[in-house]
Amino acid sequence: MRLSAEEQDATVELANIGISRAARQLSVLLDDEIRIGTPDVALCENVDEVVTALSHRPEEEVACVYQRLSGELTGQVVLLLAPRDTHALFHNLLGDGVMLHGIDVRAFEHEAMTELGNIIISSCVSAMADMLRQRIDVSIPRYSEARLDDLIEDGMGASRAVLLIQAPLQAAQREVDGVIALIFSASVAHQVLAAVRRITAS
């Protein structure tokens, strides 16, 4: 299954609205202008496709924040964070005054990243709910670390497909420069596409 030109256009628009909302919240949190690029959207049907699209190695350890969706849209959203990006972001958030070592950093980092992941996911989900005029309930965010391929495998579930959304993100005055990657489980992807088709057909 491939996205038609209309579906591609609609999902990019949807992603752009969601990520812009997230950027607005992040700009308040970081007290800095957040620059975002045009999102890239792809429907991937196997682990290799996702890995290639993300330009990571499959065995790479990645951090992620995930939230379950229920209501009119059911499934799972995963926000991927490359460890290098998260370290940079984390140190920027806390400032150079807090240079911590070892175990403790990880506990703080997980906490901060869960909050950031929550901001990004809920911004995207609320934009979707607005645009699709649907009610979506979201679970509380969970943090996890896993091999990239295992994580995608889990996200694919039985339907063997995910909607992958990526967008570059930079903070204007800080050395924060990374890529937001959101993976929607196939069930969500199909429902979003169906809603998008209803909109584009109207």
């Binding site: 209309e6 609609a10 752009n16």
Partner: peptide
């Protein structure tokens, strides 16, 4: 440039 965005505006 987004057809969806124009469509939503019109709608």
């Amino acid at each position: 440039d987004s057809a969806t965005s124009r469509l939503l505006f019109r709608a």
